[in-house]
Amino acid sequence: MNWLGSIINLDGYGHYLHWHFILVSVANLIVVGLMVITFVAALFLPFPGKGRRKENR
């Protein structure tokens, strides 16, 4: 993971965003964003083998 450390300096203080009572670290905000992207992708990406499946209804 040394290459990652050379892109993002992980040695300093964390970065935070702060509006009124809302306080969130940039790292957590990135994870939340990735979850939203993954959720939307799960809804819209085609599921492999959908057509060949047998139904039991």
């Binding site: 992708a41 799960a42 809804l43 599921f47 083998g49 959908k50 499946r53 139904e55 039991n56 209804r57």
Partner: peptide, 16 residues
Amino acid sequence: LPDTQPAYVASWIYVF
């Protein structure tokens, strides 16, 4: 341990 699932289960959201 069912052999088949209803058609709507064929979606990524059920993988989580």
